[in-house]
Amino acid sequence: MGMSVSISAAAETDAEQILKLQYLCYQSEAELYGDYSIEPLTQSLDDLRAELGRGCVLVARLGEEVVGSVRGFVDAEGTAEITGLIVHPRLQRHGLGGRLLAAVEERLAGEWAAKRFRLATGQRSEGNLRLYRKWGYRSTGTTEVTRKLTLVTLEKEPDKGVAHALATTA
């Protein structure tokens, strides 16, 4: 990538930067689906702060700037729901999304005992679908949210060795 981006657990003080980055990153999704009322664009700072306390939230930093983030929560059956994977537009297509995904998978499998990973994205979000398939996710179903938006659900089993190696060497 040519720059030093570090990935670590998010702190409560990161909430505002994460929310601003989320708003920036989801503009293209909102445009793609013609819907600017999607949850990432309407989430409040208080709701985001609550998420920071409930699960595994990671940030990617370039210096002091939060340039990426991802969230994960494990349910009672051991399924980790991965959400909110965002990378600043100027840093996209440099592998940071994959590094964040590998890091959250590693933490959820290790610290939270996840037995499987699940995430979802819109059916027209080809870049997201390509990234998730590259990381071993397979489509398990679709859900029509609105006439314009169908979510594709993807899952995979933990692969501790590969995720750890990629997270630590990338």
Results as ranks from 00 to 15, higher is better:
83 T>C: 03
10 A>R: 10
87 V>Q: 05
113 A>F: 15
82 I>M: 13
10 A>S: 01
17 Q>V: 08
34 G>A: 09
101 L>H: 07
12 E>L: 15
137 Y>L: 02
120 A>Q: 01
110 G>N: 11
40 P>C: 03
81 E>R: 13
68 G>M: 12
92 Q>I: 02
32 L>Q: 00
13 T>F: 07
83 T>W: 06
98 G>M: 01
95 G>F: 01
28 S>I: 08
82 I>Q: 03
80 A>H: 11
51 E>F: 15
30 A>N: 00
66 V>C: 09
130 R>I: 07
113 A>R: 14
46 D>A: 14
94 H>T: 15
40 P>K: 14
14 D>V: 10
97 G>K: 01
74 V>Q: 06
126 E>A: 01
41 L>I: 03
103 A>N: 11
114 A>G: 02
139 S>Q: 14
134 K>H: 03
128 N>E: 05
127 G>P: 06
97 G>A: 08
109 A>I: 03
90 R>A: 15
136 G>D: 00
78 G>E: 01
58 L>W: 10
50 A>V: 04
42 T>H: 12
90 R>I: 08
93 R>F: 04
125 S>K: 07
63 G>L: 03
117 F>A: 04
83 T>N: 11
129 L>D: 01
138 R>F: 12
118 R>P: 12
49 R>S: 01
80 A>V: 11
106 E>A: 10
83 T>R: 10
10 A>Y: 07
74 V>E: 05
136 G>C: 05
19 L>I: 00
134 K>M: 12
18 I>Q: 13
20 K>L: 11
75 D>H: 08
72 G>L: 12
65 E>D: 13
110 G>K: 06
130 R>H: 11
17 Q>A: 15
14 D>I: 07
86 I>T: 02
97 G>C: 04
62 L>K: 02
41 L>K: 13
125 S>G: 07
99 R>M: 12
51 E>G: 12
38 I>E: 06
78 G>Y: 00
28 S>R: 00
110 G>D: 05
119 L>W: 14
26 Y>R: 00
17 Q>Y: 10
12 E>I: 15
85 L>K: 00
26 Y>A: 09
37 S>D: 13
99 R>K: 14
122 G>E: 08
101 L>R: 00
89 P>A: 06
75 D>I: 08
111 E>N: 06
56 C>M: 08
94 H>G: 14
57 V>T: 09
133 R>G: 02
65 E>K: 09
50 A>P: 04
34 G>V: 07
